[in-house]
């Protein structure tokens, strides 16, 4: 949108139109992670197709209430994260910090619920002896490891906001980009582990 912009249309700089949110390094991480998680999902689907009845029977023992709650928590956290980026771009740094802390709080809540869910399932005897649960623990475990890494990256972003010499929007965008990926992966995991029958 350059010289052909009509009167009354806000003129935006070409650089802003073309700029990649975050940086290319984080995009390599995100796209690569999505690819490898995709490989995990395909593997799960293949094994599920080989034992549909066993997998469906085991799935019924999952706590769908906790699954839905965790999905809502992560989706809410992504809204906070996106609003945080908007706040940084508008220069509202204190607001951005509060929003990123709220994002992190959602992540901590998700973690606590997940640990509670695992504890409950293990005490009921649903362990990796069952093929479905072996996939369940690996997929949710790898996802949780990413979420903990995401919390660490959010912490770096908050520190950046508090440092008067820092406050680079790119760092905040990178952390939020990674957080959105965690959210996206969870939505897929929730669908294939909890909902698919």
């Amino acid at each position: 949108m350059t010289g052909t912009a009509t009167r009354g249309t806000p003129r935006r700089s070409p650089d802003r139109d073309r700029r990649l949110p975050g940086d290319i390094d984080m995009w390599v991480m995100v796209l690569g992670d999505l690819f490898f998680f995709g490989c995990y999902f395909v593997t799960y689907m293949v094994f599920r197709a080989l034992s549909v009845e066993e997998f469906s029977a085991a799935q019924r023992h999952l706590n769908i209430g906790i699954g839905v709650t965790n999905t809502v928590i992560l989706l809410t956290s992504s809204v906070f994260a996106a609003l945080g980026v908007i706040a940084v771009r508008e220069g509202a740094l204190k607001k951005a910090e509060r929003l990123l802390l709220a994002t992190g709080a959602c992540g901590v809540l998700f973690t606590l619920l997940k640990v509670h869910e695992w504890h409950s399932e293990i005490t009921q005897g649903y362990t990796i002896q069952d093929e479905f649960f072996s996939f369940y623990y690996v997929l949710t475990g790898v996802h949780l490891a990413h979420l903990v890494l995401g919390l660490l990256i959010l912490g770096i972003a908050v520190r950046e906001l508090r440092d008067p010499r820092g406050r680079r929007p790119g760092i905040i965008e990178q952390s939020v980009l990674f957080w959105h990926m965690i959210d996206l992966l969870w939505v897929v995991i929730f669908a294939i582990l909890y909902l698919m029958r």
């Binding site: 390094d25 984080m26 390599v28 991480m29 690569g32 890494l149």
Partner: peptide, 11 residues
Amino acid sequence: FPKWFAYISIW
């Protein structure tokens, strides 16, 4: 080394 290699190491 570029930062993206750190992320590959995390994988």
